[in-house]
Computed example of a mutant assay.
Amino acid sequence: MASLHYKYAAMNSGKSTQLIQAHFNYRERGLSPYAMTPRIDNRAGEGLIRARVGLQLEVDSFGRDCDLFALIAERAARRPVDVFILDEAQFLTRDQVYQLARIVDELDIPVMAYGLKTDFRGELFEGAYYLLCLADKLEELKTICWCGNKAHMNARLGPEGVVREGDQIEIGGNERYVALCRRHYIEGRTRP
């Protein structure tokens, strides 16, 4: 029976590396994975998932208005889809998360979604909120703060240090965000 998986973590935890490895594992076993990423995150280029360790995967991209259920149902009618894998799942809408549940329940296709849980203010993203509500299996991937403790906060960086105000979505990588433990996030300390 298919399941909806949500693998979440702070930045720099290896989410993209695990996603690419999962995709490879399915292909290596002769199965047909299908992976996508939101169009909004085009740091590596549209339709490209790039891990910090150097791995990358070319995939299709989608917008906030895309009906993922209809897309996968149509694709599965033409060719096998053994698993649907999504990167940057925090950017999903509520409707899209419900569409993922329908893919699992009605098409019997497993879905593996990877993404952040919270933004730079420590608040849930829309996609993360509904995945936490609907996913059959939740897995927190771990990363560490500069102090060695578990990092689960995503701090946005500005010229004066940690930024506390602004739009929820601002695409960036290591130059703009750092994963911190709760203590150092609250203190605004990004290094020793």
Rank of each mutant, 00 (worst) to 15 (best):
E187W: 00
I49S: 03
Y130Q: 11
G14I: 07
R183Y: 01
A128M: 09
Q90K: 04
A10S: 14
H152W: 11
H152I: 07
L86M: 01
Y98T: 12
C133H: 07
F69W: 05
R182D: 09
Q21R: 15
N42Q: 08
R94V: 00
A9Y: 08
R164Q: 01
P159G: 13
L68W: 09
F62H: 02
R50P: 02
V59A: 07
D65N: 13
V59H: 09
R189M: 03
L48G: 01
Y129E: 14
Y34P: 00
Q96I: 10
T190M: 09
T190K: 08
Y185H: 10
N174W: 02
L100K: 11
G14Y: 05
A9V: 12
G54A: 00
R182M: 11
E139G: 04
L4Q: 04
C133Q: 14
I144A: 12
D67Y: 13
L180E: 06
M153D: 03
D82H: 08
E88V: 00
T143M: 09
G148W: 11
E106P: 04
A44R: 12
V163I: 15
C181G: 01
T37C: 13
P38G: 01
I85E: 07
R78Q: 12
E58S: 11
K7F: 13
K142Q: 14
Q21N: 15
Y98G: 14
N12S: 12
R50N: 02
V104T: 12
E140T: 08
E160F: 01
G14T: 07
G47Q: 04
G45M: 00
S3Q: 15
L19I: 10
H23L: 03
L68Q: 13
R39N: 12
E160W: 02
D167L: 09
G173S: 05
A77N: 05
S13W: 01
R27C: 04
F91I: 02
L138K: 10
D67K: 13
N174F: 07
A70E: 15
R94S: 04
L107D: 02
A89G: 05
R121E: 05
T37G: 11
Q18T: 14
R156A: 06
L57N: 06
Q96C: 09
V53K: 11
I109G: 02
D167W: 06
C181R: 06
G122D: 02
S61Q: 10
T37E: 14
F120E: 04
E139N: 07
A135M: 12
I109P: 01
L68N: 10
F125D: 08
L131H: 04
N149S: 15
G158R: 04
R39Y: 13
E140L: 10
Y98H: 15
L4C: 03
R94D: 03
L157Q: 03
Y185Q: 05
Q90S: 05
L92T: 01
L71C: 08
G47A: 01
A70W: 03
V162T: 11
D119K: 02
Q21D: 14
F69Y: 14
A76G: 06
A89Q: 07
R52E: 05
M36I: 03
R191K: 12
A113M: 14
Q99C: 06
M11V: 07
I103C: 00
N42T: 09
V178N: 00
G45P: 00
G14A: 10
F24L: 13
E28W: 07
E74C: 11
